[in-house]
């Protein structure tokens, strides 16, 4: 026994599949993803909602997983960096980040990828200003954001081109 409240067993919808998981109900979504589901791709940089490293998608919207209780996530669709690639193919945003050198140390990267994925999947014709505004809640200390913005632009362009040629995500 410890001071932690007893675990609860619940089902979460993570990366397109239901998963049963038992966790201490005081835990944030971030902690349950990393510690109870082994999905360590999602990172933490402050656990106070300041840095954006822990961003995941909840029902396709960017959410700071350090500020969300896992217990409140039942019935919602959670998507993490591990769920971006499909059938061994990188998501266009991942491909673009790798190609553009948008990931230096790579620690803030999953947060940027999720914010960026929501952006490029839901919006077309993005201007640089729109991209800068969308990622303003994600901090990066390595890149100066230059290559991150380039990468999101590249992913957006590729996805638009693919969509116009009949490819759907």
């Amino acid at each position: 026994m410890t001071v932690a409240p007893p675990k609860v067993l619940t089902t979460l919808d993570v990366n397109g599949a239901p998963v049963q998981v038992a966790f201490h109900p005081n835990k944030t979504l971030l902690e349950v993803l990393r510690e109870d589901l082994g999905l360590t791709g999602t990172k933490h940089g402050c656990e106070m909602g300041h840095c954006g490293a822990c961003c995941v998608l909840v029902d396709e919207q960017p959410v700071l997983s350090c500020l969300a209780l896992a217990i409140e996530m039942t019935g919602h669709k959670i998507r993490t960096v591990e769920g971006l690639a499909t059938n061994g193919h990188l998501h266009p945003i991942q491909q673009a980040f790798a190609e553009c050198g948008a990931a230096q140390c790579g620690y803030c990267t999953p947060g940027f990828l999720m914010t960026g994925a929501a952006l490029v999947e839901q919006h077309g014709g993005l201007s640089e200003t729109e991209i800068r505004e969308a990622i303003a809640g994600n901090l990066c200390r390595c890149t100066g954001y230059t290559k991150i913005i380039e990468a999101i632009q590249l992913a957006a362009t590729r996805m638009e081109r693919a969509a116009s040629s009949g490819y759907s995500k």
Partner: peptide, 21 residues
């Protein structure tokens, strides 16, 4: 060119110290 470790960085596969359990 893309750094050789870029592709594992963007998938969340790389284990940083706190990712070790």
């Amino acid at each position: 060119m893309a750094k050789t470790d870029s592709f594992t960085r963007v998938t969340g596969q790389d284990k940083f110290a706190d990712d070790i359990f």
